[in-house]
Nucleic acid binder design. Structure first.
Lengths: 341, 341
DNA sequence: CGACTGCTTTACAACGTTGTACCAACGATG
DNA sequence: CATCGTTGGTACAACGTTGTAAAGCAGTCG
């Protein structure tokens, strides 16, 4: 049963020798060029399967000037939203015959800059970037002219393609839902000095309160420097320790919400009876948590698809004007804002 | 402020022309060759920064016969264990100057085979594979001689490098913990016909019961064809509907455990009072869930590091005998098996 | 002073692929 | 019969890089 594999992989040259034609003819067959004599085509195809030929992508790309790789630059895979999104982007990219290089920036400006710098310009055809702390000048690090699609909101106002939901409106809807439940001391968790999405969600939060004639109280806006469960728990603990603790909390992502729920439970504060909680991202974790999470649900599949489509079009035509795609979202109402346990 | 970027990226030739030396001398400087006259080195370095030269990875790899890419083949990024692991592998690979190509197989044999086949042999230096349904013959799809490191247990007995914890022992420890709480009707969730790890964890489960003189009852072993939250919930529902419902459950991963806890809660069954629950993987989700999850905690960082190290050594010396690395684990005891709510 | 040694640099080929230019048949057209 | 367009095929160069071999130039030794 021991089978000696040929040490070297077959190249066009090997196939050509076996089929008795020129290298270029084999290349033509491989690339589906029309004008090849049927007889020769057959011979080449036989030789192709006989040798188990696989094209050398590197060499092909060197010649063609394309790499077949795109980078997906995101903060952290351990954040379920990004893990889910990455999975969907992987799928969408596969349809474009693109391989995806996932790069983690860890959410810091340093990390984002290093990543952009390290992505050799020759390495990728383009990049899908989900920035957290990126600023305009950081884009100088990207190789000149690399096609980029941005995900989520970004404060930097660059002429780049962009995909995202209407964060202001989504936040407004979420908070309006809480107001509709009769809650009046509604807190927000997730304010952040440098994050574009944070600013927008905060704006939506304020808008909803104002529209309902409720005061916007600074002591009910909790900052979170990261968006992990721990940060949500810490923020909730601070809010609950205040003089007038909130009766509802709008968290800027599901992880913060999970942490907030946990912190509440640890203090004997019931969700939703004492505090209603809304999250953001509709990660699967929130549908099984106790209580399950009411959350803003962006259409992640649509985001992934749109991002890859946009990148494809940008790569094919670098001169086209930048496009902004708004993807839909919905509000998933679950136990954390409902009567149920 | 408009800056025209040069259309073409600088190549060694451009740098050489600017510095007034040969292409090879520039290459030597770039690669840190020792014997370059200081004067020339200085000139080259100036030209290097002046042109903003970045090596063309594709061309370099074509020449060197290495690609600088490794594939990480895993079932699904939405499974937190794999997301966490992927993040760690990304970090470890970065230290080896490797770029990581993440491929999702979706846990099916088809997916795993397609993935292996699509990874052009020229595309990667090696692969780290976390198989779920893979069988021995599928490895024929991998290009002959591609270095592979396997993660987790695999039933296929191939001469491959391998990293994983002692699943039998880990499962035994987990179940022994439940027995130590005085539980006697201990169920298992996660049996699977084709999964190597499932078989091993089941063996550990049986071993612990037998050692304690408890009967192994087939009606307390629940199959899960996937390891998602939904599968855990379904399995738990089936168990609770039985004649003698369990007073403890050992789940083969944390997602199953989360689903099981949810299903119990929906039926008014208290965790841990009525049913104690143990998970596996120590995902962060389990530390914030209500109740928090007692779980087997593999050292994921150690796994990632070992996998990358092993792959590096295999790439450097394809002839070395396969190595099996056992990474440590611990049992994290939390609320789901403790007195607390 | 010739030969050897060690440093420094260069020209050239090669990795595997594809675009360009060109050549050779062939049948159809003038 | 000369010409032309179509079809089928090939040789060569080039993408950007690095290994090899070899050459130039010191200085040193016998």
């Amino acid at each position: 049963m021991i089978r000696l594999e040929e040490a070297r992989l077959a190249t066009l040259k090997d196939v050509a020798a076996l089929a008795g034609v020129s290298v270029k003819t084999v290349s033509n067959v491989v690339n589906g060029y029309a004008f090849v004599k049927p007889e020769n085509r057959r011979r080449v195809e036989e030789a192709l399967t006989a040798t188990g030929y696989r094209p050398n992508i590197g060499a092909r790309n060197l010649r063609r000037g394309r790499t077949g790789f795109v980078a997906l630059v995101l903060p952290e895979l351990v954040v379920p939203y990004f893990a889910e999104l990455a999975g969907l982007v992987l799928g969408a990219a596969q349809e474009q015959e693109w391989n995806v290089l996932i790069e983690q920036t860890l959410g810091t400006r340093e990390g984002e800059r290093d990543t952009l710098a390290s992505l050799g310009p020759h390495m990728i055809d383009g990049a899908i970037v989900s920035p957290e702390a990126l600023e305009a000048r950081d884009f100088g690090e990207l190789a000149p002219g690399i096609p980029v699609v941005m995900l989520g909101e970004h404060s930097v106002d660059l002429p780049l393609d962009h995909v995202g939901i209407d964060n202001v409106e989504a936040a407004r809807v979420a908070v309006a839902h809480l107001i509709g439940l009769g809650r009046t001391r509604i807190a927000a968790i997730g304010a952040h000095p440098h994050r574009g999405t944070a600013a927008q969600r905060l704006e939506g939060y304020r808008k909803a309160l104002t529209e309902a004639g409720l005061p916007v109280r600074d002591d009910l806006v909790a900052t979170a420097l990261n968006y992990h469960r721990r940060d949500g728990a810490d923020a909730m603990a601070r809010l609950l320790a205040g003089d007038e603790p909130p009766d509802a909390v709008f968290c800027f992502n599901d992880l913060l919400a999970v942490g907030a729920v946990r912190a509440a439970a640890e203090r004997g504060v019931r969700v939703p009876a004492d505090v209603a909680v809304v999250g953001f991202d509709n990660t699967e974790e929130g549908t099984y948590s106790l209580p399950s999470l009411t959350t803003v649900a962006p259409d992640k599949a649509a985001i992934a698809r749109a991002a890859v489509d946009l990148l494809r079009r940008r790569v094919d035509d670098p001169e086209r004007p930048p496009e902004h795609v708004r993807t839909p979202f919905s509000l998933e109402i679950r136990e954390s804002t409902r009567g149920g346990a």
